[in-house]
Design a protein around this nucleic acid. Structure first.
Lengths: 341, 341
DNA sequence: TTGTAAGCGTTATCAA
DNA sequence: TTGATAACGCTTACAA
């Protein structure tokens, strides 16, 4: 009890919660006493009495199913930073999105843990079942990089379409005309945007897209390798491959090496995400840098504002959103196209 | 209130906590009522009354400083699995180990969050300052892969020394005699063991270790590349490089590619960890598989037992520990040594 | 085997 | 601007 220290009792509560109506003198007294006793309010008591848990849940795909755990790491970094700043705790909640029972599981999570809000990251940020479960509870939530229905909730995103457009243009400007694109599951919202950006850039530069030069990957290294091998088996193979993420791009590089092709001399490769694998490939990968941690920070901030503000009541006005900037990172896996045959 | 349902009030508590002295009939009634009302006890109330938080903190190095976020991902997977199983929640606590103020920070964490126990992973599992802070609080904690003083607390580990020995032997059996080793900061406990395993294997096979063939890396791709380039600049370069982790091994492969050397024909490379980068390199990396998630599961279990058992009193007897098995994974980056010159 | 009553340390309500 | 006092929903005695 820090109350012993100063002179008051409930005043302590007021001070620690930055409530008004406390004279500066008292406020100081309390603050000093708290420091002296190394005092810190009991979270459980606070939650119980105030009906707030100071807990935020981060929902993501079970990482044992995820080809790029890297993304989650950066999301955690960003979310944790903001949580610490505002005195919240982050609860990790991996889910198997395709479990037919997710809806119940999420409901149970909400009931059990009493979280104050939730953050959804891809591909969970496009799960209708999960969003329905949350909406039924009335809790606030934010989505990172949503694919459809962006205005269903507050969200943070970057322009994947434009980024893919820019990367494609980068390759076109290097003189490439036959460019292979490795797409991913289109239920992953951003994957769709990246494909569109590629197609638009090609169209606007009057370069036809040969259908066999669009491969279906699944974000794994192996799929990138398989698609690239198929490309290289074509009568006229591409001079560049643009993969919708870095893992698949790494697979493309591996496929080239396997055939004895030099990168970027014989085949150029570019990726997307600027994940840690981009630094591991040889040559280092040209890719699109996504500000993942920053996106998570922004999302967490959006959520906390919402938690602190109107507690779950949708008062008509539009949901807020925040767009962050990407950056094309040119490294050594792309170079000018070989002279025409 | 599920109490409405059955007939009792405190009985509910007994049932939900698996306490004895409840007739099966009543127990059933309560359980059914709970299900019907989708009831779940309020964690805050429970913590407040019972002086338990059901929270476990995972302490790790700030991932923005960490060259291999992969390790943390797997630790999280394992720890989360066990937490869910036993009804605990996992709190993420990244720390900058070299911050002179960590001791206070940890103390503050313990006071503020009221965690019931802590898990320390490398390199934090060897931080004397952090362990002191925890010990001062009397809370139970477990260490994963400790370097020194293993018996200071319950711990989970694998035999890094023997694993490195085996990998070295694998290379020796392939006919390699000049083998470069890339070590890492020796304050990282396991790093020391890996070096020792390498040295022992070489000695026992009567193959001298040429000092310039032991490079000082720091777990990053870049350092692996730098060390390997130095090796290759020697009058008699090695025919194989064994790096103390996969990132550095990836750097070794990159260095070879950069010089136009083929892997494994001109230079063999092996790593340690079997992290996700091992699947991204070309050729795929021969490495030591560490059961990281399983180690984390075991550690979490050890901790929870301790939390449930004697609450923080060290009753004389030795701390428990658990050793898990590694596995040498031979992929395509190692092959028989070129014939003698 | 079951129930009653007294806290746990906050916040919310309402008076002072 | 402050301070009693009653919740909050459990667990832990202790009694029945």
């Amino acid at each position: 009890m820090a109350r012993r220290a100063g002179v008051s009792i409930k005043t302590v509560s007021r001070v620690l919660n930055n409530e008004p109506n406390v004279r500066p003198v008292k406020r100081q007294q309390v603050l000093e006493a708290a420091r002296a006793l190394n005092y810190s309010p009991n979270i459980s008591a606070r939650s119980l009495a105030g009906d707030k848990s100071f807990l935020i849940a981060l929902l993501y795909r079970d990482p044992s199913l995820d080809p790029s755990p890297n993304y989650i790491s950066y999301v955690q970094i960003g979310a944790l930073a903001k949580c610490r700043q505002y005195g919240f705790y982050l609860l990790l909640e991996p889910y198997d999105m395709h479990d037919p029972d997710v809806e119940n599981e999420v409901q149970r999570l909400i009931i059990r843990s009493r979280v104050d809000g939730l953050i959804l990251i891809p591909p969970i940020s496009d799960s209708d079942a999960i969003m329905r479960a949350i909406e039924a509870s009335g809790l606030p939530y934010v989505r990172i990089a949503p694919g459809d229905e962006p205005d269903r909730a507050p969200h943070v995103f970057m322009d994947d379409r434009q980024a893919a457009y820019d990367m494609t243009e980068h390759l076109l400007k290097l003189g490439h005309r036959r460019i292979g694109f490795i797409k991913a599951h289109l239920d992953h919202g951003a994957a769709q945007f990246r494909l569109e950006g590629f197609q638009t850039a090609m169209a606007e530069h009057n370069v036809p897209v040969d259908p066999p030069l669009v491969g279906q990957g699944d974000f794994t290294v192996e799929s990138g390798m398989r698609c690239t091998e198929a490309f290289l088996d074509l009568p006229t193979p591409p001079t560049a491959v643009f993969a919708a993420n870095d893992e698949m791009a790494a697979g493309a590089i591996a496929a080239a090496h396997k055939r004895g092709l030099a990168v970027p001399a014989d085949l150029c490769v570019s990726g997307f995400d600027d994940s840690s694998v981009a630094a591991v490939t040889w040559p280092p990968l040209t890719t699109v840098h996504q500000p993942i941690a920053e996106m998570a920070e922004a999302a967490t901030e959006l959520l906390i504002e919402r938690i602190k503000g109107h507690k779950s009541d949708e008062t008509g006005d539009r949901f807020p959103s925040r767009q962050l900037d990407y950056r094309i990172v040119v490294r050594d896996s792309t170079a000018t196209a070989p002279a025409e045959a």
